[in-house]
Design a protein around this nucleic acid. Structure first.
Lengths: 197, 197
DNA sequence: ATAACACAAACGAACGTTCGTTTGTATAAT
DNA sequence: ATTATACAAACGAACGTTCGTTTGTGTTAT
């Protein structure tokens, strides 16, 4: 029952927005989780919308950092794709509530923050397109690949994991990421190199 | 401005629940979309929850039908997986609002309907595990495949498409499904058979 | 060391509004 | 004539938020 600061409130909001949804969470619900009265939240925050803005901003910034890293990263397309896969899944697992709020509740942001978030994610997706397209040119990926489509599919695969992956389970994030990367590059079929060996 | 029946109300609800979320949609919002007063909805429906139950039930039943078809389907694992991919994406595209409501709003169902829906989806997922595991035994898929993990990944990939696929765009559902199937089986890497030819 | 002050955090009550829903009555279709 | 549909009016509860005030917690002046 200690005194709370703004960070505590935003953190609790990310948990409740992820689990109950933005519109399914009332300020009194949120306050109760913090051991406060509803009105007390307004010592830390000016509106409910602002809480959502804060959570989404934090998540956006993490993805942005990853995109920037990969944009200047040396190495093959396969290596850079691997970094995107591992990095993206790390972000999802490190703070699953923040990530789920970002993925599922961004649409409830007020303007112009919503537009900003959408634009940020577009730019993030560009990192995937760039890596895929360079892989096509280098011969690491199929040359007839629809890069835009493939980027959407890769991100669908990555983002979908937040619905079922449990960080406390037997499978580690690194193993998950490796499996995802293997599925993306080689598919489900028997590894031809393994057959050759 | 014609008179509405229950089907009209449920259909409008599936649209609004998909776009605004269950908790973001008020009965008055929904009525306005139908050209009615809020109270008039209760001539067709006993509660707001009932609307969500109806939408989710319809979607569940479609997925169930697909799972049953594939369970008794002859053919190779690859052919059966292809049917799951095409069928699943067909369902998502045929009624995207119903599908999105099913995928995103099922968590807001009252009990016991929520449990029922979760159990139904578990059973649906079993169809994927069965196909994947038979493919491992037949040598169509890698024998070291983690079937449970792979089923989750395949479904993540499929369900993620509802966030970005536009049925009115240049890409048809069939082409999308074929691309997804190709990605799943062969991955991004250059097709070894194409190289051999 | 203590008293005076400043400020952030929390309170409890109340604001106006919207929520899901109920009731009673009118209108349109069968 | 009966039934299904729609209405306007109203219900209590909950919503996000504001208000005036109190409590805690350091900082400065004495």
């Amino acid at each position: 029952m200690s005194r709370k600061n703004r960070t505590d409130v935003v953190a609790a909001a990310s948990v409740m927005f992820a689990e109950q949804g933005f519109h399914g969470t009332s300020m009194r619900d949120l306050a109760k989780k913090l051991g406060l009265m509803g009105s007390s939240l307004y010592s830390h925050v000016v509106s409910k919308d602002e809480l959502l803005v804060d959570v989404v901003r934090e998540a956006s910034s993490r993805f942005q950092t990853l995109a920037d890293e990969v944009a200047t990263m040396p190495g093959t397309a396969i290596q850079r794709l691997s970094r995107l896969v591992h990095g993206h899944l790390q972000i999802l697992v490190k703070d699953p509530h923040q990530a789920r709020t970002f993925l599922n509740e961004t649409r409830f942001l007020p303007e112009p923050e919503r537009d900003t978030a959408v634009a940020m994610f577009d730019r993030y997706q560009r990192a995937y397109r760039d890596v895929l397209s360079s892989g096509c040119n280098s011969g690491e990926f199929r040359s007839d690949l629809d890069v835009h489509l493939a980027a959407n599919l890769v991100l669908s695969l990555l983002n979908g994991t937040q619905r079922w992956f449990n960080a406390d389970g037997a499978l580690s994030v690194e193993s998950l990421a490796s499996e995802v990367h293997r599925l993306l590059t080689l598919g489900l079929n028997p590894d031809p190199e393994a057959n050759a060996a």
